[in-house]
Simulated assay, not measured.
Amino acid sequence: MFRIVATLARGAAAQACEDLADRHALPLLDQQIREAAAALDGSRRALAAALVQERTDADRHAALAARLADLEERAVAALRGNRDDLAGEAAEAIAGIEAEIRDLDAARAAFSREVAALRRTVREGARQIAELERGRRIAQAAEAARRLRDRRGAALPGTEAALAEAQATLRRLRERQAAEAACADALAAIEAEAGADVADRLEAAGFGRRTRPDRDGVMARLRARAAA
């Protein structure tokens, strides 16, 4: 029985942890991204220091190679001048420099491999953080949409009925306004027709400017053209 109770307690604790992580998933993701970015920044600084060391080793190698070439030239000159003692001292120094160059070459080769690996780590880390940032923005937008749906679903009782009543009122208002506009258009048309009828009767009686062609007007136009 004790084992069952202990197992249930561990299960409840694990479930509670999962529920807590789910409820705070976005803040948790933000913190994890910040920690990963801080670690990546440390890797970048380490890479920068490694590149500086690599250049320092290259400069040292070049200096040793120049010193070696100078000593060899002087040793050959000493041999030509029958100064085997000085040539021997130069040979001993040359051997030491060659050993130092050999050790430095081995160290530089190993260090170059480490720098290459560090470059790959920084490049991959930057890519993964960029992907996490994109995923975080998408998740944030989805969470905002979910909260909006939850708020809409948790509307106060009666909200839907009130919205339906408001929509019905708006519909009736639009219908009344449309009917009033139709009546106004009809009245305007009637008034226009009445005004046109009066104008036509006045024109037929010979008052005012003629707006319609008649026989006398057409004949006058034709005679003018014939005379021209």
Rank of each mutant, 00 (worst) to 15 (best):
M1W: 11
I4L: 13
A9H: 09
A13W: 03
A14I: 03
A16K: 13
E18V: 09
D19S: 13
D19Q: 15
D19Y: 05
L20E: 09
D22R: 06
R23G: 02
H24T: 13
A25L: 13
L26G: 02
L26K: 03
Q31L: 09
Q31W: 09
E35K: 08
A36I: 00
A36F: 04
A36Q: 02
A38F: 02
A38E: 14
D41P: 00
G42I: 02
R44L: 01
A46C: 06
A50F: 03
L51T: 11
R55W: 02
T56L: 08
L64W: 02
A65D: 12
A65E: 10
A66W: 02
D70M: 09
R74E: 09
V76I: 14
L79K: 05
R80G: 08
G81I: 01
D85R: 04
L86E: 03
E92M: 08
A93Q: 12
I97P: 00
I97Y: 00
E100C: 03
D103E: 14
S112G: 15
R113T: 13
R113D: 15
E114S: 14
V115L: 09
A117V: 04
R127Y: 04
R127V: 04
I129H: 00
E131R: 05
L132Y: 01
L132D: 06
G135T: 11
R136W: 05
Q140H: 08
A142L: 11
A144H: 14
A144N: 14
R147C: 05
R147N: 08
R147S: 10
L148K: 10
L148V: 03
A154F: 01
P157L: 01
P157M: 03
E160A: 14
E160R: 07
E160T: 13
E160W: 02
A162T: 08
L163P: 01
A166H: 08
Q167M: 06
Q167S: 15
L170P: 00
L170Y: 07
L173Y: 10
A178T: 12
A179F: 06
C183A: 15
A184P: 00
D185V: 10
A189V: 10
E191S: 03
A192G: 12
E193T: 13
G195D: 08
A196N: 04
A196E: 10
D197F: 04
D197W: 06
A199D: 06
D200Q: 08
A204E: 15
A205F: 08
G206A: 09
F207A: 07
T211Q: 05
R212A: 14
R212H: 10
D214Q: 04
V218M: 12
R221T: 10
R223A: 04
A227P: 02
A228S: 13
